[in-house]
C-alpha cells in the first residue's frame, strides 16, 4: 500500500499538485488518469522521491518515505521498480546490461546467477535473443518490455509506470497493459500506472484516480467510472464518440 497525504508541489511558484491525498492498493493496478499537463508525472515522481514535495507525506506501508534520508530511502528503492515514459534504458548499455544493472548494484550474486535472473525476466516479458542489442536497435514495444524486465528484476514490492503505452499501437498497448497486470497479480505488487489511454482504464483499472489541474477530482473503479456523474471526468473519459456510445450502451443495458 502506498498513501499520499495532502501532497503539495510547486515549481517556481506555480502549484502543480494541490493537496492530493490518495491510497494505492496492494496487488492491484492503480491508475492515475488525466489530461496531459494535469500533473500525473509530477505526482508519480513525488511518490518515489524524484521530486521533493513542498508539504504532505508519502507512506510506503507504515514507513513515512518523505521523512527518510538518502540511505534509508535506498533500502526502500530496492523494492521499487519504475517504467519511464520513453523507457529510459541506458543508451550506452546493451539490453542485458540494462536489466542486469540493478542486480550489480544491489546484490552480490555471481555473474552466472545474475544472467539467469536477467534471462528469466526477459522471458517473462516474452523477449528472446535480444540480450546483446542496444536500445537504438529496438522497437518502441520492445523498449517498454525491456524497461519492464529491468523494473521487475529485483522482485519489487512497488511498481510505477509512467504512460507505459504512450507511442505504442493499440494492440501492443494491450499486450503491455496485460503484462503489467499479470505481473502485479503474480507477485502481489502495488502497481501505479499513469495513463490517458481509455482502453487501459477499461481493461485494467482496478482503482482509478482522476487528476485535473493538479487536484484529485474523482476516484473509483472501472465499473464505477461508467456511471460517474462528475462532469469534468465524463468530458475527459468519454471524449471520443465511440466511448460515448459504449457508455450509453452500458448504462441503458443496466
Amino acid at each position: 500500500m502506498i498513501r499520499a497525504e495532502h501532497i503539495v508541489k510547486s515549481f517556481e511558484g506555480r502549484t502543480v499538485l494541490d493537496d492530493v491525498s490518495v491510497e494505492f492498493e496492494t496487488g492491484k493496478t492503480n491508475l492515475i488518469i488525466g489530461r496531459s499537463g494535469s500533473g500525473k508525472t509530477v505526482l508519480l515522481k513525488s511518490l518515489v522521491g524524484l521530486h521533493e514535495v513542498d508539504s504532505g507525506r508519502v507512506m510506503y506501508d507504515d514507513v513515512d518515505f518523505t521523512a527518510l534520508g538518502f540511505r534509508e530511502r535506498k533500502a526502500i528503492r530496492k523494492d521499487i521498480g519504475m517504467i519511464f515514459q520513453g523507457g529510459a534504458l541506458l543508451d550506452s548499455s546493451s539490453v542485458e546490461e540494462n536489466v542486469k544493472l540493478p542486480l550489480d548494484l544491489f546484490t552480490s550474486q555471481s555473474e552466472a546467477e545474475k544472467l539467469e535472473r536477467v534471462n528469466f525476466c526477459l522471458q517473462r516479458v516474452r523477449l528472446e535473443n535480444v540480450n546483446h542489442l542496444y536500445p537504438a536497435e529496438l522497437s518502441g514495444g520492445m523498449i517498454k518490455r525491456v524497461a519492464i524486465a529491468r523494473a521487475i528484476v529485483l522482485n519489487p514490492k512497488y511498481l510505477f509506470c509512467d504512460e507505459p503505452n504512450s507511442g505504442l499501437d493499440p494492440q501492443t498497448s494491450i499486450v503491455i497493459d496485460n503484462l503489467i497486470h499479470e505481473i502485479t497479480r503474480e507477485y502481489n505488487i502495488t502497481t501505479i500506472i499513469n495513463t490517458h489511454d481509455m482502453n487501459s482504464v477499461m481493461e485494467i483499472g482496478e482503482k482509478i484516480v482522476y487528476i485535473h489541474q493538479g487536484r484529485k477530482w474523482w476516484e473509483g473503479t472501472k465499473d464505477e467510472i461508467l456511471y460517474a456523474d462528475n462532469r469534468e471526468l465524463n468530458d475527459f473519459v468519454f471524449a471520443s464518440a465511440m466511448a460515448k456510445r459504449a457508455k450509453d450502451a452500458a448504462v441503458s443495458g443496466r
Binding site: R77, M82, L90, L101
Partner: peptide, 8 residues
C-alpha cells in the same frame, strides 16, 4: 531519473 530510482 531511472538511475536515481535504482538508488544510484
Amino acid at each position: 531519473d531511472a538511475l536515481e530510482i535504482m538508488g544510484v
